[in-house]
Computed example of a mutant assay.
Amino acid sequence: MTAAADREGGAGWPALFILLVLAGLAFAVALAAAIGDYSISLSTVVLAVTNGLGLTGAEILPIEQSIVWDLRLSRALVAALAGAGLAICGAILQALLRNALAEPFVLGVSAGASTGAVCVIVLGIGAGGLSLSVGAFIGAFAAFALVALLSNGATSGPNHTILAGVVASQLFNALTSYIVTTSGNAQQARDVMFWLLGSFGGVRWPDFQLLIVVVLLGLAICLWMAQSLDAFTFGDEDAAALGVPVARIRLILFAVTAMMTATIVSMVGTIGFVGLVVPHAVRHVVGPLHLRLLPACAAVGALFMVLADIASRVLVAQQTIPIGVVTALVGVPFFALILYRSRPQT
């Protein structure tokens, strides 16, 4: 019996693991609020947070209070929620599609969101009344609707859904490239490229308030269907034999993952590989049961994204690297490892 299997047998280990990750997340968020062009001590960060919550009235510099509370803390918390949401979506899609390489953007949602954002940035659709986030959200759900249409709704098999997602991704990526190439100037192209690679630079408290509702609601729905997800890992026929309404559950969970991914992408752009890397790593620690796997994925995904955001700000002096570049630097080697391990044995 492996160490992972031993740990899975003990109900206390997953809870302890999640608590340890959450403790690390709290420290990472504080560190993210302290690091920047204007360095702030961790003790000052704690006082700024308690001041902002109304718990204390400590005397600190107004500029430090504003930097921590108005800028960096909201950014770190949005990063945590984005990482948690993408990791949850990855775990769900890997179970539904029974594909180790499935991740939140496999359904073309990211590509659709990119097209919607480009239409706002470059074409000016909405004449100023439509924000970039709203445009991206509309595009994301347009892509999801196309995938549902191409895959004949919830009755298609996992391979059919993946192929429909590939088609949708290629279509919307082509539309994005065409719009930028034919209609955008150099500055617009630069803005679009930076957004497509992911950035937490523009997020504030209203984004956090919306995202925490979406992620917690999505997690609650997925936990409610955790036993059905366990059955899906054995195949549709076995799940149906166990009394699981396969078509209905698949449709609901696809819609939930699309909603979460669309919301995240509309706020921070395209951030890949989080939904691929985190579920695989966590599954080796807490086991495959989704009642344990999903909360652990949320905690580890949040920690991973906050650390990636810190890295994006410190790797190059006086410059912020797009967050998607940092996650890709971790995700690509992991992706290659999965491909290597899944190769046919001779």
Rank of each mutant, 00 (worst) to 15 (best):
A148P: 02
G275M: 08
S131Q: 07
I60S: 05
V203G: 00
A240P: 03
A95E: 08
L307A: 08
V215Q: 07
L337E: 00
F27Q: 11
S110K: 10
T257I: 01
R98F: 05
L55R: 12
A308E: 06
T346R: 14
S199L: 11
G269W: 10
V120I: 15
Y38D: 08
I40N: 03
L163E: 04
V278Y: 01
A296V: 03
G165C: 14
A255Y: 01
T257K: 02
A76G: 14
A95H: 02
D191P: 03
A117V: 13
S183Y: 14
T233I: 06
S74A: 15
A142D: 02
V78H: 07
N185W: 06
M1W: 11
T115G: 08
A189Y: 00
S312D: 03
V246T: 05
A136Y: 07
I221P: 01
A30L: 10
A111Q: 09
Q94L: 00
L25A: 10
R250D: 05
I88M: 15
R75W: 06
A328R: 05
E237W: 00
L303K: 13
I60P: 03
T155I: 06
V268F: 08
S156E: 13
A5C: 11
G116Y: 12
D37K: 08
V314S: 08
A136C: 06
L303F: 15
T233C: 04
G275L: 09
V330K: 07
L276K: 10
F17K: 13
V330I: 14
G243K: 09
L81G: 04
L175K: 13
A91F: 06
A111K: 03
A84T: 02
I323M: 00
L211P: 01
I310F: 10
L53I: 13
P245G: 13
G275I: 01
H290Y: 09
A58M: 14
L303V: 11
R292I: 06
L291C: 09
L197S: 11
I264R: 00
A95D: 08
N99K: 14
A317D: 04
V246R: 00
T161C: 00
G324K: 11
P279S: 07
L293M: 14
V167C: 13
A336N: 11
D238C: 01
R204V: 14
V274N: 03
P206D: 07
A241D: 04
A308L: 11
D236Y: 02
Q187A: 10
C297Y: 03
W13A: 10
T263G: 15
T56M: 13
V256F: 15
R341W: 12
P288D: 10
A28C: 12
D70I: 05
A308R: 03
G135R: 05
M225F: 13
F273K: 02
V106L: 15
L307S: 11
I264K: 09
D236R: 09
A145M: 14
Y38I: 01
I67C: 07
A311N: 00
I323S: 04
G112H: 08
A302T: 03
R343E: 05
S183F: 15
T115M: 15
N173S: 15
A82C: 15
